[in-house]
Computed example of a mutant assay.
Amino acid sequence: MQHFFIEPSQAEGEWIRLNGSDVNHMKNVLRMHAGERVTVSDGAGKTYQCVIDSYEDKEAVLKIESQEESSTELPSRIYLFQGLPKQEKMEWIVQKSVELGAYQIVPVSMKRCVVKLDAKKAAKKQERWQEISRSAAKQSGRSVIPEVIPVCTFKEALEQAKQLDVILVPYECAEGMKETKTLLEKIWPGQSVGIFIGPEGGFEEAEIEQALAAGAHTITLGKRILRTETAGLTTLSVLMFHLEE
């Protein structure tokens, strides 16, 4: 069933009026007609089962058949703090992390990041990443669209992470799979979790020291060194499996 997003204010009584590019997609690309059913999420946790009633001007009029609280979100909010990677890897990371249940993606400029973005380029990149997040949320049946916030410094990222319950830093120099498993098993549904992933060159020792001082825990993901675009998704997968109700 096709899945669309709206603002909460667009659901009024028994009706939803869908507008914007989704109407063109529904009408001219998917060629959906009156009587066909769609799923609509309001981005705040509610999901509506609807039937297309009609098309009016640039709107699609949907009749709400039922509504429910979404069951597709993880019981914990997971924040991915991703060191800026080279080329277009960030687009792939955003797409897959949304599919795996990340609540928010935070692009972080770290010491060993090759990519350096000025304010104008960073704004354009963020806009592109947010659109990818929206598309991935639709495809995977999410009830919320994870936010990709503006690129920040490592110091700013740590300040944000201090508000979370758990901070994890997969680190190639970390040891102790038993200790890592014990730590992950202690994370329970409802806790907020931050995952810090270094860029291609990894973390500098000073960054690890700063993270530890902020309350982070270094963990190992095994004996193999994972690429930056793999490490975060691996950690998300482990947490998804552990936390999923």
Score class of each variant (00 low, 15 high):
residue 175 E to C: 09
residue 162 K to L: 05
residue 127 E to Y: 00
residue 183 L to T: 05
residue 124 K to R: 15
residue 151 V to S: 04
residue 171 Y to K: 09
residue 184 L to F: 09
residue 140 S to E: 07
residue 180 T to P: 04
residue 157 A to V: 03
residue 136 A to R: 02
residue 129 W to Q: 10
residue 145 I to T: 12
residue 175 E to G: 11
residue 158 L to S: 09
residue 159 E to P: 01
residue 157 A to R: 05
residue 176 G to Q: 09
residue 167 I to N: 07
residue 138 K to M: 14
residue 156 E to D: 15
residue 181 K to Q: 15
residue 134 R to C: 07
residue 150 P to N: 11
residue 170 P to A: 10
residue 178 K to E: 15
residue 157 A to P: 06
residue 165 D to R: 02
residue 137 A to R: 01
residue 140 S to A: 14
residue 159 E to T: 12
residue 174 A to R: 04
residue 164 L to Y: 00
residue 178 K to P: 01
residue 176 G to K: 08
residue 171 Y to F: 14
residue 145 I to M: 06
residue 144 V to M: 12
residue 157 A to Q: 03
residue 128 R to N: 03
residue 185 E to S: 14
residue 133 S to Y: 01
residue 141 G to M: 08
residue 178 K to R: 13
residue 170 P to H: 09
residue 183 L to M: 14
residue 152 C to Y: 02
residue 153 T to F: 07
residue 147 E to F: 01
residue 124 K to N: 13
residue 172 E to T: 07
residue 183 L to D: 11
residue 166 V to T: 11
residue 137 A to Q: 07
residue 186 K to M: 11
residue 148 V to K: 02
residue 166 V to W: 05
residue 170 P to M: 13
residue 142 R to S: 12
residue 138 K to L: 12
residue 176 G to M: 08
residue 148 V to Q: 02
residue 138 K to F: 04
residue 137 A to V: 03
residue 174 A to N: 05
residue 152 C to W: 05
residue 156 E to K: 12
residue 165 D to Q: 05
residue 165 D to N: 12
residue 154 F to N: 10
residue 154 F to T: 13
residue 160 Q to T: 04
residue 168 L to T: 09
residue 173 C to V: 02
residue 182 T to W: 05
residue 141 G to S: 05
residue 133 S to N: 06
residue 179 E to Y: 09
residue 129 W to M: 13
residue 184 L to T: 07
residue 163 Q to Y: 00
residue 150 P to K: 05
residue 133 S to V: 02
residue 137 A to E: 04
residue 169 V to L: 15
residue 129 W to V: 09
residue 141 G to F: 00
residue 186 K to P: 01
residue 124 K to G: 07
residue 147 E to A: 14
residue 149 I to W: 03
residue 134 R to Y: 03
residue 141 G to I: 03
residue 124 K to D: 06
residue 174 A to E: 13
residue 153 T to H: 07
residue 182 T to L: 13
residue 169 V to I: 15
residue 130 Q to A: 08
residue 164 L to A: 06
residue 153 T to C: 10
residue 185 E to F: 00
residue 183 L to K: 14
residue 141 G to W: 01
residue 184 L to G: 10
residue 181 K to I: 13
residue 138 K to D: 09
residue 165 D to H: 05
residue 134 R to Q: 12
residue 141 G to H: 04
residue 160 Q to E: 12
residue 159 E to R: 10
residue 163 Q to L: 11
residue 179 E to F: 03
residue 161 A to S: 12
residue 139 Q to C: 10
residue 150 P to L: 11
residue 153 T to Y: 01
residue 161 A to G: 11
residue 162 K to H: 00
residue 163 Q to V: 08
residue 171 Y to N: 06
residue 136 A to S: 13
residue 186 K to G: 11
residue 180 T to Q: 07
residue 153 T to A: 08
residue 133 S to C: 08
residue 184 L to H: 07
residue 169 V to C: 15
residue 147 E to V: 13
residue 148 V to F: 01
residue 143 S to A: 15
residue 147 E to N: 12
residue 174 A to I: 06
residue 171 Y to D: 11
residue 183 L to P: 09
residue 145 I to Q: 11
residue 136 A to M: 04
residue 177 M to V: 01
residue 138 K to P: 07
residue 139 Q to I: 03
